[in-house]
Design a protein around this nucleic acid. Structure first.
Ligand code: SF4
Ligand code: SF4
Lengths: 146, 146
DNA sequence: ACTCTTCGGCTTTCGTAAACTGCATTGTAC
DNA sequence: GTACAATGCAGTTTACGAAAGCCGAAGAGT
């Protein structure tokens, strides 16, 4: 039960974009160097982020990436879900037919608890945007922890 | 970011014990058959639960396991933490020196957010006991979701 | 049109950790 | 003392995260 590198890299990638002038097109190489991220790995992550409309890609000379929307309009949840798919602590909480123990059609107390845990977790990621994180980083303090 | 089988098996194991007569000593074979858990795998999990004082082991003929305390006194967190160790979504939230990006001594906004997420998650597991889950399972409905 | 640059998509590789297994040993009830 | 059940540790297999590589496609500038 851990965050993946892809998620961490993805977050730092978009955070880097969020810190820049919104009109500046930033190439992959710059981001990966600035944030110490393997370039090809980051490329893969940014592909999905680009497809889901969080960032915008620009090919060719002086190409790169920009944020597609204002950092205030991009929640952490948006980024994380794009990278790793909907957030589920067990396979059965996505679809009970994925129950590995043949209880696909029964009530399962553990499943209910996990569902509640997931809801709480998602709340945290929904309620904070990239702009919040950039702000925290600037002031080096956490404000408005809802 | 998923629950491990060990955690799920461990939970079902202790839940099975919680459903029984508190004085009944239940052997591994019975639990693993009733809950469809590989016996040797469950054995390993129960060893740690036994060491940390959540269940009590009884060796020899007609031996097996019992809960060490009343189900009301055992939180889900107790069980999960003994199986997989303290709950951390990233290595750096346990100890910032585990930061993989050389930011061990800097403020990191992402880390702060993850810390908050962890706090929320732990709350859910702290606030519910085995007795709650058994109750849910009996009534097939979730009450008192704090 | 040509070419350089940067993203796009696919495949393979590597390492680690989860998931499961086996066996010899110890303890206990009968 | 023997059958039963946990203990302890070593082992295997499988799965997935974390990259690295290769070639193709698209756009910018000339
Ligand atoms: S038994 Fe319950 S917790 Fe386990 S996979 Fe099935 S629904 Fe989920
Ligand atoms: S950079 Fe931040 S989030 Fe990443 S490991 Fe270091 S402290 Fe944690």
């Amino acid at each position: 039960m851990q965050f993946t590198k892809a998620e961490e890299y993805g977050m730092f990638g978009v955070l880097y974009l969020a810190e820049q002038d919104p009109n500046k097109v930033v190439p992959l190489s710059e981001i990966s160097e600035a944030q110490n991220i393997p370039e090809k790995f980051l490329a893969k992550i940014f592909q999905s982020l680009s497809k889901s409309g969080i960032i915008r890609s620009h090919r060719g000379v002086r190409g790169g990436f920009t944020l597609a929307r204002d950092p205030k309009e991009i929640s952490v949840k948006d980024v994380l879900e794009t990278i790793q798919g909907p957030y589920h602590l067990m396979k059965c909480t996505e679809d009970q037919r994925n129950c590995t123990d043949g209880k696909s059609d029964e009530f399962c107390a553990l499943r209910e608890l996990i569902l509640e845990a997931e809801r709480r977790l998602v709340q945290v990621f929904e309620q904070h945007t990239l702009a919040d994180l950039v702000e925290w980083q600037k002031t080096k303090s956490v404000s408005q922890l809802v």
